[in-house]
Design a protein around this nucleic acid. Structure first.
Lengths: 217, 217
DNA sequence: GAGCGCCTTTTGTGATCACAAGAGGGCATG
DNA sequence: CATGCCCTCTTGTGATCACAAAAGGCGCTC
């Protein structure tokens, strides 16, 4: 509680960064419901820091669209309108189709193997009805593929979209009761194996837009 | 200097927001050179606020990629690598082609007139060799068109890319010595008039990528 | 004359405080 | 019993302070 109570002499990653990263992960993985309120003092209490780092972390998340700031300054996770959800889905399609396209020529067998492993975990999460686990491993599947695109700015932008959709995705996957493993992921892997770019683009676009179309309907 | 020295009883837009908006505009319009350093106390002094709002504004701009944060916490405008510039140009192409495409069916004569007026100002800035004025009016041209797309999230993302390219654009347009008015803008207007979507997409893509290709070369 | 180390100053980080505004509940009144 | 008002407590904002680290300059030494 004192000023320099930090005993870990390791690479202290600056308090606000720790708070930021933890909250960001929580939001992206859908661990917070849409419209849920957060308070600076509450965050400070949870992470054992003062309001200052909590404020910086919240500001940053607001800037990324992960949190909503009311006119009176209260912060909460956003409740997205259908228009906004459709737009974010279109952005996912735009960005992720391009990323997958760029990753294709660099996708070797080791990557495809890793994707298949991750995909097995995705299927497991689906069968367990673990919404957060599903979202987390699903995003890991996509990120693993897109990392091969060697396009960090584009990947960062895609992750920002994921972040904005986080709470909504949780609401979506909690609502729709699927137990079948993701079909589009298999199409993506097959297209990667075949070096089939049009097929890959189509599969990614379908995978990215399918779930959100259901939510809007 | 005192606590509540705010005499303007208007809609006080919260100090950090005023600082944020001013700095953001400056950066986007290329008024700050790449690599230029900023200090929290310096910002506070300029805007007559304490470090707290200055910090929040800077944090927000860092989150948007408009400012670079060194490992020791010093902030400066980013000096972009060629790879990053190419990536951001690709993002501009991706997002703005889509935005223009969505704006096309809603583009009526009043909009085209406005674009032509703005374009005349762009040409004037070019002939005056006013780099900042050129960047500002050029972005106004694009924003005016994209506003018609009714896609706020997508437009916000495009503006984030502009923001990241701000200081670099200034360096670019200061370096290349053109005096001819923008040809691609005329192609964009012509395609809008003709309702020619493929032509519009091509013209926007060319306009967005041409300048940055020169910088990289 | 050149290189190196120490010291001062600048700067970012985080904590704490004073203040204003808004929200929510409890109590009194009709 | 319902409704409205007031009070209190919570919450965000901005200022200020203490501290640590990094940077830059200056002088000393070889």
């Amino acid at each position: 509680m004192s000023l320099s109570a930090r005993s870990t002499s390791e690479q202290l990653p600056s308090a606000h960064d720790r708070v930021y990263r933890t909250l960001r992960t929580r939001i992206m993985h859908g661990e917070i419901a849409p419209g849920e309120a957060l308070t600076l003092r509450g965050i400070g209490r949870e992470f054992d820091v003062s309001m200052t780092p909590a404020r910086e972390a919240v500001r940053r998340l607001v800037a990324e669209g992960a949190l909503f700031l009311s006119s009176s300054g209260r912060v909460s996770t956003p409740e997205l309108s259908n228009e906004r959800i459709e737009e974010l889905a279109a952005l996912r399609a735009l960005l992720e189709v391009e990323l997958s396209s760029r990753a294709l020529p660099r996708a070797h067998m080791a990557l495809i193997d890793r994707l298949q492993t991750i995909n097995a975990t995705v299927a497991e999460m689906v069968s367990k009805r673990d919404a957060v686990g599903y979202i987390r491993t699903n995003l890991e599947f996509h990120r693993t593929l897109y990392l091969r695109a060697q396009a960090p700015a584009m990947l960062a932008m895609a992750e920002t979209v994921w972040l904005q959709l986080g709470p909504t995705m949780r609401a979506l996957y909690g609502r729709l009761r699927r137990t079948e493993p993701p079909h589009n992921h298999k199409l993506i892997i097959a297209a990667l194996k075949a070096g089939d770019e049009p097929g890959l683009r189509l599969a990614v676009r379908s995978d990215v837009t399918q779930g959100l179309k259901l939510l809007v309907a």
